[in-house]
Nucleic acid binder design. Sequence first.
DNA 1: TCGTTTCCTGACCGTATGGTCAAGGTGAAG
DNA 2: CTTCACCTTGACCATACGGTCAGGAAACGA
Lengths: 215, 215
Amino acid sequence: MTGDARISQLKPGRRTDIRRENERVILDAAEKVFAEAGFGGATMQLIADMAGLPKANLHYYFATKEDLYRRVVQQIFEIWLNAAMLFDAAPGPVEGIGGYIDAKMDISRTHPSGSKVWASEVMHGAPVIQDYLETTLRDWTDGRIAVIQAWIDDGKMRPVNPRHLLYLLWATTQHYADFGHQIQTLNDGAPLSDRQWAEAKASVKDMVLRGIGAI
Amino acid sequence: MTGDARISQLKPGRRTDIRRENERVILDAAEKVFAEAGFGGATMQLIADMAGLPKANLHYYFATKEDLYRRVVQQIFEIWLNAAMLFDAAPGPVEGIGGYIDAKMDISRTHPSGSKVWASEVMHGAPVIQDYLETTLRDWTDGRIAVIQAWIDDGKMRPVNPRHLLYLLWATTQHYADFGHQIQTLNDGAPLSDRQWAEAKASVKDMVLRGIGAI
DNA sequence: TCGTTTCCTGACCGTATGGTCAAGGTGAAG
DNA sequence: CTTCACCTTGACCATACGGTCAGGAAACGA
């Protein structure tokens, strides 16, 4: 009880470390609770319990529930963007889009809560991250459309509509996180095994890359 | 639109008509509010305002918020199932899957709120419709997998994993409803026009049917 | 007309929630 | 040891929410 395993710092124990560590714990708990209950259904008490901290302590680090939620969504957005970089260094659609599918599928498996929070936020009209949609996401989308168009112009894939290809990629890869519960239910209640995840990734890549004439 | 002209009965004014009409108005309002705010974020007062009825009147027709929500979700589930019938009467994947994509895309356009409520329900672990997932949806899925497998065996399409093909279809078509706000934002803030919807449907069908070697 | 069933609704209630606060704890620097 | 900035938290508060209820208004059938 006294030996709190929360902080495993050995040497520094700096104040900033306490802050960083607690913010980390709270954000992780909040991501789960927001994903499972939605913004309205989530309660600060629930998040506090899951974080193993008293509720008042959350308000010391995050002024309001909305502030906490905003931080969670921003965190997810960065993960999306990082995964998106695979697109650029690729010589063609097989590596670029194939790698993007791999990355997004991996994220759906490792960060399902984040994906759900993002989906929920967008479904509710993106009250918190509307500006991100209008700036960062739009710019990124335009850039990727240009890359795909270049591949098309180079004859590396069929002339498909790049925008709707992106939507198909987003939809399909995130489906394995957002609708993970439905997929699990249709899998006799068991989470997808390593083998099944590999099969899912291979199937998606196969259908998409064939669909765009890249293989 | 849920006009405020609640009761436009001229002749019969039957009791059952009053009940039916008010339930209709309430369910429509509830679908919108649940879609926009989630179950937790939705309030009976909000639904009442949108329905143009006093809150106490909602509780006359629907005992609890959860009852009302349950009815909304069931209503959506039936729409899904109806659209799914197109699958059966088709001689091959071009008509069957192509028609299914058309139908699902149309639903995404005409019933975006319903799709969002369904998505939200599943994302939160399907607390209300878990039994539907385990029975009706599972049976339907197994049946469609058999149909697709038969098409594959008949050489009408490439041997893809039918289950993951279904997931790709669900994900992509519902994406246009669930992420409609994001799509609209990336479309300069304007809803997709008739022409753009047609382009979306054509693009999805083209990529999918090519991906499975049906065309 | 009267009686009965159904519908309508303002006022009310217990509870749970987001948020506040003041008092106390903690650790490092001087 | 003292100081001081930072961290912790039980207790508390105002509000908003889901739900209740009693009493009245319509809508029928007879």
